[in-house]
Design a protein around this nucleic acid. Structure first.
Length: 234
DNA sequence: TAGGCCATCTGGTCCT
DNA sequence: AGGACCAGATGGCCTA
């Protein structure tokens, strides 16, 4: 989506190509590889491929017959360099593909996370950072709610029930109900959404150090025994 | 138009 | 050696 110009890092690839082109013809190849006039491709990698062209296709310039001997020697040297550069470019393209897939997977996971977070219908899609912060605060709120529920059960005298750990993980619907806006003050609920809620009253802050201060011992039993529990709760 | 968000490329580093 | 992960750079798109 973002066609690179020749000032971008992508130009380095081209310049690498220019180097081994230069074995037989330094200046001519340099001018023949300009990327400015190339049509932009919707796929940057494709655009770069087009811009880089195929070095082996062009071959040495025959414009100077007096340098045939030199050129031949250069060609043999250039051939190995062509192979090396081709391998290099191939590795780079594969790495780019892997990186693209990796980021797509990351985005998919982020979408999955968004899908389990409660949002109001008219809410715009949470940004990545908002999603992470909201999830962090939301989890904290759920945990706190369950802890309070546990505590209230104990205090009411249902020790029998409270001693029994949940056999089933808490369903999302259950947790949503427990933490519905009705059960949390509007101010606190808002802070769940707020990207700047690390300083809010509900969240223990976004700082990892302070976040980790909420240890397994503080977690409600249902989370400690849930397969969905955090690693630190297991 | 500036700023935020995002996708992609790239080179470096670490791990297997 | 090759893959995973990461951070920086870059450019496009969108919105206030």
């Amino acid at each position: 989506m973002s066609p690179k110009t020749d000032c971008s890092p992508g130009a380095q690839v081209n310049s690498e190509g220019e180097q081994y082109y230069g074995v037989s013809d330094d200046e001519g190849s340099a001018s023949s590889l300009g990327t400015g006039s190339l049509p932009s491709s919707p796929n940057p990698s494709l655009a770069r491929l087009q811009a880089g062209g195929s070095p082996a296709d062009e071959g040495p310039s025959p414009e100077c017959p007096q340098k045939k001997q030199k050129a031949r020697r250069g060609r043999t040297k250039a051939k190995s360099e062509v192979v090396l550069t081709k391998q290099k470019r191939n590795r780079r393209m594969k790495a780019n593909d892997r990186e693209r897939n990796r980021m797509h997977n990351l985005n998919s996971a982020l979408d999955a996370l968004r899908s389990v977070l409660p949002t109001f219908p008219d809410d715009a899609k949470l940004t990545k950072i908002e999603t992470l912060r909201f999830a962090h605060n939301y989890i904290w709120a759920l945990t706190e709610t369950l802890r309070m529920a546990d505590h209230s059960l104990l205090s009411v005298g249902h020790q029998e029930l409270a001693r029994e750990p949940f056999r089933q993980p808490p369903t999302t619907a259950c947790l949503l109900e427990l933490t519905s806006p009705g059960s949390i003050s509007p101010c606190e609920w808002d802070s769940l959404y707020s990207p700047v809620s690390q300083t809010g009253s509900l969240s223990p802050t976004d700082s990892l150090e302070e976040g980790r201060s909420y240890q397994a011992a503080d977690a409600p039993a249902c989370l400690r025994h849930s397969p969905y529990a955090f690693p630190e709760f297991v």
